[in-house]
């Protein structure tokens, strides 16, 4: 919840995991902010009619939540790159967890690499990615 310096970081360090708010109300708020007010994101019934198990979290919201993990851990972190792979749908109104871990450290550039994953309650990875982050 505060700023961090590169020297504070250790290879293999876990970022504190958080449970993202995947409630229908919050996903609808996000969808509205990004101009993606379609049933597959904001209406379980409409999503089911499209063959989905229920409303799903937009991919860009999952990615934004992964980025949020980094800033929640180090508020002063600058994400230079975040690369996200959407492996399976993230279902609205279901519990998920986001976690991250430091997997590379460039001492010269004060850059670190972080593995990021978003898992459902069954422990299945739905979204994964990596972030390149610079710290002072």
């Amino acid at each position: 919840m505060s700023g961090k310096a590169f020297s504070d970081i250790e290879f293999g360090e876990d970022l504190p995991a958080f449970k993202p708010d995947t409630s229908l109300a919050n996903v609808t708020k996000f969808a509205k902010a990004v101009g993606m007010m379609t049933g597959r994101f904001t209406d379980h019934e409409a999503a089911r009619k499209q063959g989905l198990p229920g409303a799903i979290v937009p991919g860009i919201m999952s990615q934004a939540m992964l980025a949020a993990l980094v800033h929640r851990w180090a508020q002063n972190a600058t994400i230079e790159k975040i690369d996200t792979i959407f492996r399976a749908p993230v279902l609205v109104d279901q519990e998920h967890a986001i976690s991250g871990v430091v997997t590379d450290m460039d001492e010269d550039e004060h850059r670190i690499e972080i593995d990021l994953t978003l898992e459902n309650a069954a422990g299945e990875t739905r979204v994964l990615g990596t972030a390149t982050v610079r710290l002072p």
């Binding site: 996000f30 509205k32 990004v34 934004a64 949020a68």
Partner: peptide, 15 residues
């Protein structure tokens, strides 16, 4: 306004 909604909905807390 869109920045704030995007940020808060995705779990950002940094001011």
């Amino acid at each position: 306004e869109e920045i704030v909604d995007f940020a808060t909905a995705s779990g950002e807390t940094a001011p």
